[in-house]
């Protein structure tokens, strides 16, 4: 049983909280101790949202600190850059190659940084850029890009696919279960 600290970062509205809930549920089903931490309140208002998921034999703190994440799962490029210091030196950074401008960029007071993926790759050997928005569009709903990303990430764990499916069935609203399982499978296959 491997100890894993997974940091999930995105923009409010991208489904960061739901993703961590599915991940937590799957890990618990697989017999892990689980602690997760999330900050609510601003989550629907387009702010930077981050959740921490820590799994292992026995977990104390629910919070991941700088240099502590085995996996960074980022739904937006700038957010990957924001949380990059939290990845371990040999950590895996999975980043959705999508740009969402924050308000200071929109109003022109700062520039959106250029070459984000290159910057990340220069610092970490294991950076995996993903076109998750395109994959979600192909499934007919851009909102499932989070679960596509989760499917991709799942390859890094020893949790079986069936357990992930069960976790999705339990966590996601009934009418969206099939769509999310498809999204998960698509991401899981992309990782191969």
């Amino acid at each position: 049983m491997r100890n894993l600290s997974i940091l999930i970062a995105g923009v409010g509205g991208q489904g960061t909280l739901l993703t961590s809930q599915v991940l937590g549920a799957a890990a618990m089903k697989a017999g892990y101790d689980v602690k997760m931490s999330e900050v609510h309140g601003m989550a629907q208002r387009g702010g930077s949202v981050v959740t921490y998921v820590r799994i292992g034999k026995n977990v104390n703190s629910p919070v991941i600190e700088k240099g502590g994440a085995d996996i960074l799962l980022c739904f937006e490029k700038l957010e990957a850059l924001r949380w990059i210091d939290y990845a371990k030196e040999d950590g895996t950074v999975i980043v959705n190659d999508q740009r969402i401008d924050p308000m200071p960029v929109i109003i022109g007071s700062v520039k959106y940084p250029e070459g984000v993926i290159e910057k990340l790759s220069a610092r970490f050997p294991n950076v995996l850029p993903v076109k998750a928005l395109d994959a979600a569009r192909e499934l007919g709903n851009i909102k499932v890009l989070n679960i596509v990303m989760l499917g991709l990430m799942a390859k890094n764990t020893d949790i079986p696919v069936e357990t992930w499916h069960e976790a999705i069935r339990e966590t996601v609203k009934e009418k969206f279960v099939d769509l999310n399982i498809k999204a998960f499978d698509k991401g899981y296959q992309m990782a191969v």
Binding site: G46, L78, R82, P102, V105, P113
Partner: peptide, 9 residues
């Protein structure tokens, strides 16, 4: 890294 404050939706 540019801040991403919450905004009116």
């Amino acid at each position: 890294v540019p801040a991403r404050p919450p905004v009116l939706c």
